[in-house]
Structure formats: C-alpha cells, structure tokens
Design a protein around this nucleic acid. Structure first.
Length: 300
DNA sequence: AGACAGGAGCAGT
DNA sequence: ACTGCTCCTGTC
C-alpha cells in the first residue's frame, strides 16, 4: 500500500445483508449513496461501504486497528435466520421476508437517533435527510476525510445543538421541531437524561423517560428504543405500519385506534417484533406502494 | 392550489 | 379514551 495513503481499508464477506434497504430505508438519516457505495459518519469517523457480490469493502479516513464501532453499528454478524425464525408464520410476514430478505436493524448512537426521529414528525425521508445534513454541516464537528473526499461533519452533539440556539435550528428547516430538539438537547447536555443508561433499564421505564422529552411521543420513543437502544420488541407504529397492519391483519375492521394496533403489534410479532415491523414497513413502502396502503385505509 | 407527508401537544369532550 | 386543531415546509 502506498505509505502516503493513511486510510483504513477492510474487506470481509457478508451474507444475507441488504445494505441499500438497511442504510437507505428510513431507520437512519445520515447516509448518502455515492457511486457504488454508501458514505456516512459512524462513531465520529467518516466511513464508506461498498457491497459487491457479498463482499464488502469498508474504507475509513485513517488506519484502524479496531473495527468494533462499525461492527456494532451494522450488526452484520447477527444471525438473521434465527431472528426471522421467531416471526409469526403467517402470510403477510412470509411475503415481507421473501421480498426484503437481508434487511437489517442498525444499532445507532442514541442521541443521533433521538434527534433524527424528533425531526421526522410529519416529514418524509428525503426531507429528514436534508434537515440532518444541514444540522451536521452547520453545527457538527468536522471529521477526517480521505484525500479527494469533500469535508464532512459528524451529527452535532447535544452541547452544540444547545449552543446553536433555536433560531439557528429553524434555519436548518426544522420548523416547529426546532424548540423540541433544542430543549431535548439541553436535557441531555446538562445531564438530566442519560440516554446510554436507558438501554439497561426495563423497556417500559426507558420509553416513559423518552416520552417525557418535548417532541417525543410513543412513535418516536419506540424508534429510539428499537434503532438506538437495542430493545428488540419495540414496535413503532407510524402511518405506514398502521395502514399495512390494518390491511393485512384487520381487513374488516371499521376503525383501528393507535392503541389497539400497538397492543396487537407487541404481542403478535414475538421477541423480535421490531425486526418484523421493519420488514412489514419496508415491504409495504417499497413493494406495495402508497396506492395500496391508502386504498386499504379508505376501504373500511 | 389544497391536501398531505413515516407526529406531538394541547384543549375539549 | 377519542377527536380536532395547530405547529414549519415542500411536493404533488
């Protein structure tokens, strides 16, 4: 290797992992498709991942001796077959698994995950990505990038969000979410909420603590529990899931309350309900489409 | 061009 | 417990 090239490169064989669905499917908002790969910032490091014929190339700006940070984030060594085996054996799940096999759950930084999903309310993925990118560009700390790659910042830590102030956050197109993010960042920055500690608490307690935060309701809290804190049974019910569940499991129901869907989802889908949810969600969005979902919602 | 988007919080019933 | 309204901002 050229001694002037200080970047780290790692190659490994990964099976049963759909990188596009996982990084671009709406569970994380900081990734961009660049050429044949994905580029983002994980644990304060710029990283590029290319998947080709089951072989991955992971590239970093600096040489790395320890890859635990990215292994943990991607969770590629998780036994997907074992997870899928816990799903209920019904037609909707079989269809979703057949269509999306290889879709995975990421293990994100809890703060970045929380901030991202506060931004997500009443927004579509591309718009959330834009807000998150603006926040990073204007308020995040720079990370090292390889020669020839444009400078890039990490997602701002809570302290930087607090410093930025609400007006600057509105400038990042956060709209009415600006005061939510700001106040939540302050709770974390000033030590009143220890996000990492939530992972060790019972799910109900962790959820309740999250829902104390401004801008965090049940759905956002469940996203953070599932995508950031590692609670495998957390099951975010957004409009897509609500429509999909209604159509697939309650085709004759007159109306479905959020509460009823939450109760159904947390009991019916087993110990890895969150994983099952991601499959149903992605399948409904990618393979069935909006017309399918909306039509079903109206056809009460 | 008015509704709507991968919600939350609030008041009112 | 449920309904209805508002909160920014783009997009179709």
């Amino acid at each position: 290797m050229n001694p002037a090239d200080l970047s780290g490169t790692r190659r490994l064989a990964v099976a049963d992992y759909d990188l596009d669905a996982t990084l671009g499917g709406g569970q994380a908002f900081g990734w961009s498709r660049v050429g044949e790969g994905w580029e983002g910032v994980v644990a304060g490091r710029w990283v590029r991942i290319e998947a080709r014929d089951g072989a991955w190339t992971i590239r970093t700006a600096r040489a790395e001796t320890d890859w635990e940070w990215i292994d943990r984030y991607l969770g590629w060594d998780e036994d997907l077959a074992a997870v899928i085996a816990t799903f209920p054996d019904d037609a909707p799940m079989r269809d979703a698994v057949a269509a999306c096999r290889g879709l995975r759950l990421l293990r994100q930084d809890p703060w970045e995950c929380l901030a991202g999903f506060i931004c997500s309310t009443t927004k579509q993925v591309v718009q959330i990505q834009e807000m998150v990118a603006l926040l990073a560009r204007r308020h995040g700390d720079p990370v090292a990038t390889p020669e020839g790659v444009a400078p890039r910042n990490a997602f701002p830590r809570p302290e930087r969000i607090v410093e930025a102030g609400e007006a600057a956050l509105r400038g990042c197109k956060l709209g009415f979410r600006a005061p939510y993010i700001w106040a939540t960042a302050r709770e974390v920055a000033e030590g009143r909420l220890d996000l990492d500690a939530l992972a060790k608490r019972p799910e109900d307690e962790a959820r309740a603590a999250l829902m104390e935060l401004p801008g965090v309701g049940r759905k956002v809290a469940d996203c953070v529990l599932l995508f950031g804190l590692g609670f495998p049974n957390a099951f975010p019910v957004d409009v897509w899931i609500a429509r999909a569940l209604g159509r697939l499991y309650f085709p004759r129901a007159r109306k479905l309350t959020q509460r009823r869907l939450v109760r159904f989802s947390t009991t019916h889908f087993g110990p890895h309900g969150g994983y099952a949810q991601q499959y149903l969600f992605h399948h409904a969005r990618m393979n069935l489409g909006r017309a399918w979902a909306v039509d079903s919602a109206k056809k009460t």
